[in-house]
Amino acid sequence: MSKFNLKNTLIAGTAAGVISGLVKLGWENILPPRTPERDKVNPPQTLLQQLGVPAKLTQATYTYSGQQLPWVSYLVHFGFSISFATAYAALLEKKVKLLTLGEGIPFGIAVWVAFHLVIMPAMKTVPDAKDQPFEEHLSESLGHAIWMWTNHEIADEVLRQLKK
């Protein structure tokens, strides 16, 4: 068995997390998980405000192409994506077959269940699972499956290339 390589894991996780984070943002443009009303203060902004970060910061935006974009939400989004992609890359590096079966899809669905149906509702960051609309469940479940599949494909390939 090969020795665990932290540097390779961090490189693979970061690359996969950035790319999969872009994939997830694109997915949410095709199948938005929340209504415009619920998205005025999105879950990353709500979570930060629950942790005491002032709305002035959580609602901060930058302007691109005449549109106001929530840069703080993007930091949380990509931080989450890179963190999970790096953890998953570590599982790939350590060859933990049970958790990497199905090219990451079951792992992604498990992350959706854990965060969107259990943890965030318990924290009151999002409504209880039964109070979330079907469209939110559909978008988030499929989006997390595709997000983690992307993490698997990118991290696996980067790790292979780094071992050459």
Score class of each variant (00 low, 15 high):
Ser2Gly: 05
Lys3Val: 14
Phe4Leu: 06
Asn5Phe: 02
Asn5Met: 04
Leu6Ile: 14
Lys7Leu: 02
Lys7Asp: 01
Asn8Tyr: 13
Ala12Ile: 05
Ala16Phe: 01
Ala16Ser: 04
Ala16Thr: 02
Leu22Gly: 15
Val23Tyr: 14
Leu25His: 08
Trp27Glu: 06
Trp27Gly: 08
Asn29Trp: 12
Asn29Val: 13
Asn29Cys: 08
Ile30Val: 15
Pro33Trp: 10
Pro33Tyr: 12
Pro33Val: 02
Arg34Phe: 01
Glu37Ser: 08
Asp39Gly: 05
Pro43Gly: 02
Pro44Met: 00
Gln45Ile: 06
Leu47Gln: 04
Leu47His: 04
Leu48Asp: 10
Gln49Trp: 03
Gln49Asn: 06
Leu51Ile: 07
Leu51Gly: 06
Pro54Lys: 03
Ala55Met: 08
Leu57Ala: 11
Leu57Glu: 07
Gln59Asp: 15
Gln59Ser: 14
Ala60Phe: 07
Tyr62Leu: 10
Tyr62Cys: 06
Thr63Ala: 15
Thr63Leu: 14
Tyr64Thr: 15
Tyr64Glu: 14
Gly66Gln: 05
Gln67Arg: 13
Gln68Arg: 10
Leu69Gly: 05
Leu69Asp: 04
Pro70Leu: 09
Trp71Thr: 04
Trp71Pro: 09
Val72Thr: 05
Ser73Gly: 14
Ser73Lys: 08
Ser73Glu: 11
Ser73Asp: 10
Tyr74Asn: 07
Leu75Met: 14
Val76Ile: 14
Phe78Arg: 08
Gly79Phe: 02
Phe80Ile: 15
Ser81Ile: 06
Phe84Glu: 14
Phe84Ile: 13
Ala85Lys: 11
Ala87Arg: 03
Tyr88Asn: 09
Ala89Leu: 03
Leu92Asp: 00
Leu92His: 00
Glu93His: 04
Glu93Ser: 10
Lys94Arg: 08
Lys95Ser: 14
Lys97Arg: 11
Leu99Trp: 02
Leu101Val: 14
Ile105Pro: 02
Ile105Ala: 13
Ile105Trp: 00
Pro106Val: 09
Phe107Tyr: 12
Gly108Glu: 10
Gly108Trp: 12
Ile109Gly: 08
Ala110Gln: 07
Val111Lys: 07
Val113Leu: 03
Ala114Asn: 05
Ala114Val: 11
His116Asn: 15
His116Arg: 08
Val118Thr: 09
Val118Gln: 07
Met120Gln: 04
Met120Phe: 13
Thr125Lys: 01
Pro127Ser: 05
Ala129Trp: 13
Gln132Trp: 04
Phe134Gln: 09
Glu135Ser: 15
Glu135Gly: 11
Glu135Gln: 15
Glu135Tyr: 11
Glu136Gly: 12
Glu136Met: 06
Leu138Gln: 02
Ser139Tyr: 09
Leu142Pro: 02
Leu142Gln: 04
Leu142Tyr: 04
His144Asp: 01
Ala145Lys: 13
Ile146Met: 10
Ile146Val: 15
Trp147Lys: 07
Trp149Glu: 00
Thr150Ile: 01
Glu153Asn: 11
Ile154Tyr: 01
Glu157Val: 13
Leu159Met: 02
Lys163Ala: 14
Lys163Val: 08
Lys164Phe: 01
